[in-house]
Each structure stands twice: as C-alpha cells, then as structure tokens.
Amino acid sequence: MKYWLFLLTIAVSGSALPAFSHGTDLKYRPVEAMQIQANYDSGEPLKNARVTVYSPQDSETPWLTGNTDENGYFLFVPDRSLVGNWDIKVRQSGHGKITTIPISDRTELVNTPQQWSSQGVYSPLQKAVMAIMGVWGFIGTALYFSGKKRTKTNART
C-alpha cells in the first residue's frame, strides 16, 4: 500500500518578505511522499474519506488529518526524523481501517512507483487457482486455434 515517490511542492514563503507587504515568493523542491490508496472490498474507492495520520512519537494526537480524493488516494510527506511505526486511519460512513507503515532510518527510498503493499491479500487457495487458471488460459487458447485450423483444413478437403 505504500511507495515513495517524488512530489513537487510549491512553498508559499512569507519568511523572507521584503519591506513591501503582499509580495509572494514561490519556490519548489522535490520531496518524498507516502501515498495511501483506500478501497472498499469491492474495489470501489473510499472517496473523500477522513484520514488521520499518527506519527511514531505520539500515538494519540493526530500528526496530520485530511481526506482522500475522488479515487481514494491520500498523499502525505512524513517527517523522516521520526523513525518507527506511522499509523494511518481511514474512515467513512461506519467503515474504517488502520494500517501501519514502518519507517526506519534505513528505509530505502525509491523514486519510481512500486507494487502496492496490500492489506487485502489473496488466500493460498485463491493464488493457486489463479495460477492454474493462467496456465489453462494458454492451453485453452492453443486448443481453440488448433481446432479452428483443423476445421478449416477439413472444410477444404
């Protein structure tokens, strides 16, 4: 459910304002963010669901709150100096779940999207059946075309 990616942020800086007020300075820099994807079991996204982020430092006081977008995504930039388990709570209309993202000082950072770390895993039986189905797909396709070829051959004779 997690991957690191580069995120461009636009900082609205008021710290270095010149003498004249109302001036605005726009800066940007790449940072690394964590993306959460929240779906129902059906695969439908949890749109605009309430998200609460707890840092390893304080498991009771929210470090950040926000909402998922229309596709069930939520993006945040954790403070890398706070090493440990980051807990993310997502709730909507009586449905909810908490997931934990362990971040250590050795956590490797990657710049390309990786596979989602999923909470909804398949059972071993389901995985086995899916593998067998894949193999059968190839066999079935081969049998179909070999039968078709033979039919055409028979039609010519």
């Binding site: 079991d41 895993v121 039986l125 059946v129 067998i132 189905m133 059968w136 079935g140």
Partner: peptide, 27 residues
C-alpha cells in the same frame, strides 16, 4: 470436434468453479 469442445468445457468448468465459489477473500 464435439468431444474436444466438451473436453474444453468440462475442464473450464473444473477450473472456473473453484474461483466462483471462493469469490472474494474468505471471511
């Protein structure tokens, strides 16, 4: 020809049925 079709249908049924029965993750 019919035998082969039946064979394909039968084997498909054997493989597809467990998927249909298993549905989503087992509760």
């Amino acid at each position: 020809m019919f035998a082969k079709k039946s064979f394909i249908s039968l084997v498909s049924l054997v493989f597809i049925t467990p998927i249909a029965l298993s549905g989503c993750a087992s509760p």
